[in-house]
Design a protein around this nucleic acid. Structure first.
Lengths: 340, 340
DNA sequence: TTGTAGGCGTTATCAA
DNA sequence: TTGATAACGCCTACAA
């Protein structure tokens, strides 16, 4: 690509201003403004002349001066990564949809990690965005403080709050505990956990899982760091099964990892899910319900996560964190009761 | 939800202006402006005083006045729907990423159909957006004309151009033809097509498929309108197989439909893919490559689609349409050669 | 090198 | 009901 100008060329003609409309309609600029504010009264005669002139020039009110005055843009930045995971894209959809219902626009920011979220927010603040919803967890107290310092309201989903941030999270720890119960009740005695990386929600799930296993007097599980993708789940399972006696139950950090793991279990090792190994995922992405997959998993209540995130931002209550219950979907990769 | 103000409350303190920084640093506002424009020369002494004052106030330059003057915002609206289909979300990711590389921001607009795209563009033009990339096809010449009239540069992906719009599209017709070849070469003699709805790219695939079948002297396929989702593919296949003698090959409008159809074929009718019925999808979403699915499909070259879309918008060449080649991925749901 | 002044397109205030 | 004017925050001449 040749070196290009930072901005695309402006539209051939610049957009007409209210002054241009006023000139054409033979009224003052303020009258045009009034016609388009809808709140003020304008005589029917004048209104019609103005609307005709506006239509002729294809006039569209410019929101920028108002933003300049009020400091409020009606724009929310949504920070996201992991586009390959339907959990995130569906979250994005719902958040955008809810923002739109409140007449707020979504500025989408794509980033693979939260490492540079401070720069991103700093960058975007030149547009005077009204707030930030981060679908990525904030990774450190240092970043959280910087964000707080930026004085732009921010809500993070499935993130630690560091005592500062407003957060909305699925009850990850309790899900981990339930996963342990499902596997143990299903007869598993030798379980494993395929972990994600650098994510507080994944840590919470892991902690809940380990604690409950200990309570149930089951051996501590073998823990392997996979990641969050199908491929990483596949590879982690290959490694897991190559490393010693096979487990009889695996809890996976997310559905994509679980699906990858199942493909490895079945195709590389010729083992059966759930007869040889039971598998549980997390997220409740649509693919988990496909008949050919039929994965037992935990639904994250994306609708509520999104709704509470937008509420927290728009209503600007005192900083607080909201926990959203998960929902277990028992399907074909686990057994209801031990038949031993 | 109680009736809420249209905008979230502004950040507690309004963001400081360059004037505030100037006051604190004991210089004029223009000097502050110069320090942050980087182009102009400022003495080291003054620069430092200004930067210190700016840091103390946590000053961030406001982009709006500049936009007001130039009419160029550096914001591109990306119109999208079908979040459940990884083809669209991956397209969104790549487009956003490329825009970001050009220092352009993405304003995300979610809409289920293109029906109201005119309203959307009209709405957004109050932010003086520099252009629009629509990942949804523009559905009618009427809408295309309106968009043209709005004088905002627009590029549509996999859309008809109506002789006006700039478009970037996969070579859908040729893919349809290749699908016919693959099935016929694989021994199919009685094929079906599971169609989408209201989409020019889907029509093109269908036309290419039908034409090539005729050339190959195979009976015209049974065509059923499914849609674009797993569920719709599933239901369409159930209906298809219930309606008479089963086909021995099915071309599906997209991968999700193909995957749904396969689940129905296998689980409802106990038939084998590919032994009884061969299946071809379209898009090349990641799931098509999962071992448990292993679907023969056509990869849309999203990278190129996204790159050309952004180029077309940013470089503002004379209106033109670009066709991007697809790539066939032969996998386990078709057979290479007829063994009859 | 630095300061002063005008203008971008609105909305809000005040006067007519 | 309508018009004139100030203000938002920055950039860009132009003046000093």
């Amino acid at each position: 690509m040749p070196s290009s100008p930072p901005h695309p060329p402006a539209a051939s003609r610049p957009q007409p201003s209210s002054t241009a409309v006023a000139r054409l309609a033979g009224v003052s600029q303020s009258t045009v403004s009034r016609v388009f504010s809808a709140s003020a009264r304008v005589s029917a005669d004048v209104r019609e002349r103005v609307l005709n002139a506006a239509a002729e020039l294809n006039y569209r009110p410019n929101a920028l001066p108002g933003i300049l005055q009020t400091g409020r843009s009606g724009i929310i930045a949504v920070v996201m990564g992991g586009f390959y995971n339907p959990f995130f894209t569906e979250s994005l959809r719902q958040v955008t949809s809810l923002l739109h219902a409140r007449r707020l626009e979504t500025m989408l920011v794509e980033t693979s990690s939260d490492g540079n979220i401070e720069d991103i927010v700093g960058d975007l603040s030149r547009y005077r965005i009204d707030g930030v919803i981060s679908l990525l967890a904030i990774g450190s107290a240092r970043v959280a403080k910087k964000l707080e310092h930026a004085a732009i309201p921010i809500v993070a989903v499935n993130s630690e709050s560091y005592g500062i941030l407003r957060t909305v999270s699925t009850d990850n720890r309790s899900a981990g505990a339930t996963a342990a119960d499902v596997l143990v009740d299903g007869g598993c005695r030798r379980v494993a956990y395929l972990a994600g990386r650098d994510s507080p929600s994944q840590s919470e799930r892991q902690i809940g899982f380990l604690k409950r296993l200990a309570q149930r007097r089951v051996h501590a599980p073998q823990v392997l760091v996979a990641g969050f993708s199908y491929e990483e789940g596949y590879e982690a399972a290959v490694k897991l099964l190559a490393s010693g006696p096979a487990p009889d139950g695996i809890f996976c950090v997310c559905d994509l990892v679980a699906i990858g793991a199942m493909d490895a279990i079945r195709n590389v090792y010729g083992l059966s899910v759930p007869d040889d190994i039971q598998v549980i995922g997390f997220d409740g992405i649509p693919m988990s319900g496909w008949q050919g997959i039929n994965l037992t998993t935990f639904h994250q209540d994306i609708e509520t996560l999104a709704r509470e995130s937008v509420n927290l931002l728009a209503e600007n209550p005192p900083a607080r964190s909201i926990t959203v219950p998960h929902q277990l979907a028992r399907r074909g990769t686990t057994r209801a009761l031990a038949d031993t």
